[in-house]
């Protein structure tokens, strides 16, 4: 659906986007991650034809951004970062204006549908500058989906919202993602993990990871960490580790009558069954055993951190 080929964008001497190559398939919900200044917004702005690539090309369907910007803009719904709105207008006037420019024919009906979806009822006649941030965000989203675009691009749609508003907007995004190709630009990892089928992480204008959340996590998981809580002494735990070989005890702390243990071993083989059998043989009581997943945060930090700070 959207194909980026050798995409480069320079701002003077600064290379913001450095030979990006990837494809976004139809119907996909793509999480576009990266630290601030990684080139996310720049890439998005090139897809939406706000900026022109220095080198390379972007094609959307059969069209490309250099030759058919107007046609591409018609296909895309876009909520820019910081959600700029004409604050002196009323919500109705703003959406009406959007509809006119976008050539939406059945405005009344679309307004109703969009108001249902984005929860705009009761605020349609209000002036935008009187609205709360959460409502402004909904107005921005309504603007983006008013013409029922095939592609929806949201640049940090939940930044600056409170947890309740974030949850609401996130639900709305999941809802919208069912029927559209969606690009969600964000640096909030939980959000991307909760919503997206596929994640692309970029750093300094380059793709550093591409895959589903699980794939990214497993690629970083060469050591498996297991937490246990059982009736034994720390010394006995050390004995167990020695007996099973190649298991390291990260910690073993006595807490009341139980000991809390963190074990680590090579992820190529799952040794949890062995541990359980050993515990059973010793007749200890096992209260808890669970594997700790490598968080996406860990993946993100590993991929995007630059030693000695960002250049």
């Amino acid at each position: 659906m959207i194909q980026l080929t050798d995409l480069v964008k320079d701002y003077g001497n600064l290379r913001a986007v450095d030979h990006l190559n990837f494809e976004i398939n139809e119907g996909e919900i793509l999480g576009f991650l990266g630290p601030n200044g990684a080139g996310k917004t720049t890439t998005i702005r090139m897809i939406t034809c706000f900026l022109t690539p220095t080198k390379g090309n972007i094609s959307v369907g059969d069209l490309n951004v250099l030759d058919n910007p107007i046609e591409i803009k018609k296909m895309i719904g876009y909520l820019p970062e910081h959600n700029p709105l004409y604050t002196e207008m009323t919500v109705y006037d703003y959406l009406k204006f959007t509809a006119e420019i976008r050539g939406v024919l059945n405005f009344k009906q679309r307004l109703k549908e969009v108001s249902d979806k984005c929860g705009l009822h009761g605020i349609v006649s209000k002036s935008i500058n009187t609205l709360s941030k959460g409502y402004k965000q909904r107005v921005g989203l309504a603007q983006a989906i008013l013409h029922d675009p095939k592609i929806l691009i949201l640049d940090e749609p939940t930044s600056g919202l409170d947890p309740n508003q974030i949850a609401e907007i996130r639900e709305l995004i999941i809802e919208l993602g069912k029927e559209k190709t969606l690009i969600l630009c964000s640096h909030i990892l939980q959000e991307v993990q909760a919503v997206c089928d596929r994640i692309i992480i970029i750093n300094k204008g380059k793709v550093v990871a591409d895959g589903s959340a699980e794939q990214l996590q497993s690629s970083f998981q060469n050591r498996m960490k297991v937490n246990l809580e059982l009736t034994a002494t720390p010394e006995e735990i050390q004995e167990m580790a020695a007996a099973l070989t190649n298991i390291s005890v990260l910690s073993a702390k006595l807490k009341g009558e139980y000991v809390q243990v963190e074990l680590e071993f090579d992820a190529t083989a799952d040794r949890r069954a062995e541990i359980f059998n050993y515990v059973k043989k010793k007749k200890w009581t096992l209260l808890e055993m669970h594997r700790e997943n490598v968080s996406l945060e860990h993946v993100f930090r590993n991929l995007t951190i630059v030693e000695g700070g960002r250049k």
């Binding site: 107007i70 046609e71 803009k73 018609k74 820019p80």
Partner: peptide
């Protein structure tokens, strides 16, 4: 300055 140019310029308009 308010950033609305980005919305405006990404409408199908030149």
């Amino acid at each position: 300055s308010t950033g609305t140019l980005e919305t405006m310029a990404t409408f199908p308009i030149n």
